[in-house]
């Protein structure tokens, strides 16, 4: 459904590089995640694919149409939710939705079945102005607006940024239901924990793709054993583990330290921590998360 070939884009007359040599394709009916921090180039890619920006080099297609030549046809068949998108603050929910439906040449009634699940949650407030909605409700309304014309491909640029956990969970539930209806979804996020909810993900940093895989395979490809160390005084433990000469990497992860060693068999570490005065320290092997993988890829 979406293909990118050697896409490159620079800003300020070539002095600032946004993305380089981007190649990937998204299959029909797939949720594909672009995972990376702010400034990684996610928004640039979205804008190239939605025909809003021209790439310096390379080609890309959406639904079989070229993003440069057939931009009109692409604009007919995609739904897009930009990162900063905040709707018309001074229009009500219903007015916003009606407006976007008409702009896309359709009516709310015609495609109501697509948005019904989402819309019923915000319908009680339909006469409230968008500027007075909570983050989660705004996000739902924005999704309704992006869906109202029954797009075959949906582009969602950081839809969950700044939204609380409850709304984020609900939002991903909605994406799953849309996927079941055959809509292809390209979604970007800075939250690593959302990666596991995608079918496939591309990890992106500083305009380059570090890896493209299913979340499971990315985790499987973690090359060394990962240990979780718990106990004692957190900050001291962190400092001491970093100072340990067998340590390859050591990062705080929630209540534990995630540690990799230069050599997977490491029996001396507990002794070492004991000698530093840590009491009740436990160590166990764990399955890496996508975030562990991302950190490891960044370190390289």
């Amino acid at each position: 459904m979406i293909t990118l070939n050697n896409i490159k884009k620079t800003y300020n007359k070539g002095t600032v590089s946004a993305v380089q040599n981007i190649n990937f394709s998204v299959n029909k009916g797939e949720i594909f995640g672009l995972i990376g921090p702010d400034g990684a180039g996610k928004t640039t890619l979205f804008r190239i694919l939605t025909t809003l920006l021209l790439a310096d080099e390379g080609t890309a297609t959406v639904n079989g149409f070229d993003v440069v030549k057939d931009y009109g046809k692409i604009r007919d068949c995609v739904g897009y939710m930009p990162g900063k998108f905040s709707l018309y603050q001074d229009l009500t929910i219903e007015e916003n939705l009606n407006f976007f439906a008409t702009v896309f040449g359709t009516t709310i009634r015609e495609n109501y079945h697509l948005i019904k699940d989402i819309y019923v949650q915000i319908e009680p407030f339909k006469n409230r102005r968008a500027g007075k909605l909570s983050g989660g409700m705004k996000q739902k309304l924005a999704l309704c607006c992006a869906l109202i014309h029954k797009p075959v491909v949906l582009f969602l640029d950081e839809p969950t940024t700044g939204v609380d956990v409850v709304s984020r969970k609900e939002f991903w539930e909605m994406l799953k239901r849309l996927k079941a209806q055959g809509i292809t979804i390209l979604v970007s996020t800075a939250y690593m924990d959302e990666a596991k909810l995608c079918d496939r993900i591309a990890l992106i940093q500083k305009g380059k793709i570090l890896s493209i895989e299913t979340p499971e395979k990315i985790v499987e490809s973690f090359p060394v054993k990962l240990f979780a160390i718990r106990g004692g005084k957190a900050y001291k433990l962190l400092e001491d583990m970093r100072a340990f000469n067998g340590t390859d990497s050591c990062f705080a992860f929630g209540d534990a330290l995630h540690v990799t060693f230069k050599n997977d068999e490491n029996n001396t570490v507990l002794q070492y921590l004991d000698s530093k005065g840590h009491i009740g320290v436990s160590i166990e092997t764990i399955t890496p998360t996508v975030e562990d993988c991302f950190i490891r890829l960044l370190k390289k």
Binding site: G36, P37, D38, A40, T161, G162, A190, M192, Q205, F251, A252, E291, F294, I295, L298, K299
Partner: peptide
């Protein structure tokens, strides 16, 4: 810590 990469966040 909104929007930064996991290493920077740590």
């Amino acid at each position: 810590t909104g929007g930064v990469d996991p290493v920077t966040r740590r």
